[in-house]
Computed example of a mutant assay.
Amino acid sequence: MSTPRFFADDAEIAHVGEGLLARTLPRAKWTHEAHLAATCWLLRMRPDIDADAEIAGIISGYNLAAGGVNDDHHGYHDTITRCFLAGARAHFAGRPNGEPLVDSVNALLTTPAGARDWPLRFYSGKRLFSVQARRGFIAPDRAPLP
């Protein structure tokens, strides 16, 4: 597992989350860690947003605004996103109430659920990297999600 890039404070995480929603976050800042931080920020700080219903549109819209595409091979991947969303929820369930967001996010980045290859615990590579999995959520074929 590579060493994650940690966040300095809650404000840095909010900057990523707000930049995602506003579609202004520089593309170079949209890292694996930023994906997880934005997901955590949405879950904890934006209860007005139904992450399950809106995450596909949020990330797909950001990708297009940042000059990317969402097609069968690039851009938004629904199954991976929803896998990490499940992991973030499970992570928060085990964290202390009132914990600073930066502590929760940085802790997540050090766990298996924060690793880039975490979805492969639940999915075979063939299933996870299929066009069907990119375009919509598909159930895991190795183990149930948390």
Rank of each mutant, 00 (worst) to 15 (best):
Q132G: 00
A51W: 06
P47C: 10
G57L: 05
L128A: 12
G94Y: 06
P47T: 08
D72E: 15
T79M: 10
R121I: 02
G87H: 02
F137D: 07
G61M: 05
D103Y: 12
Y62F: 03
F137W: 14
A107W: 05
A107K: 08
S104K: 08
D71P: 07
G57D: 06
D52N: 14
G136Q: 15
V102Q: 07
S60G: 15
D103C: 10
A133I: 13
K126Y: 00
L128M: 15
V69E: 15
N106S: 03
N63D: 12
A107S: 14
D52R: 14
D103A: 14
L42D: 01
G98F: 02
N63F: 13
A107H: 14
R44Y: 02
G61K: 05
R134A: 12
T81L: 01
F92G: 04
I58M: 09
H91Q: 05
G67P: 06
L64I: 14
W118D: 06
G98T: 02
K126T: 15
W41N: 11
D78P: 05
V131L: 00
D72T: 12
V131G: 01
S104L: 04
V69M: 13
C40N: 06
L101T: 00
D72C: 01
L85Q: 05
S104I: 02
E99L: 12
Y123E: 10
I59G: 01
A51D: 04
H73I: 10
D78E: 15
D103E: 15
F129P: 00
P100Q: 07
C83N: 08
F137A: 08
A107V: 01
L85W: 08
R89N: 07
R82V: 03
R82T: 03
D52V: 12
T110K: 07
Y76R: 14
D48R: 00
S130D: 04
R116Y: 15
W41R: 06
L42G: 00
S104N: 08
Y123S: 10
A115E: 07
G67L: 10
G114P: 01
G94I: 03
L64V: 14
F84T: 00
R135G: 03
P100N: 06
S130W: 04
A88E: 01
E99Y: 02
G125H: 11
S60L: 02
R89Y: 02
H77R: 11
F92C: 03
L128K: 11
T79E: 02
E54I: 01
T110Y: 06
L101N: 00
A133E: 09
I49E: 02
S104R: 04
Y62E: 00
H73T: 15
G75T: 05
E99T: 04
A86N: 03
R127G: 00
V102C: 10
G98Q: 04
L43F: 07
H77Q: 11
R95E: 02
I55G: 02
D78V: 09
A113R: 09
A115D: 09
F129W: 14
A107R: 13
L43P: 01
G57T: 06
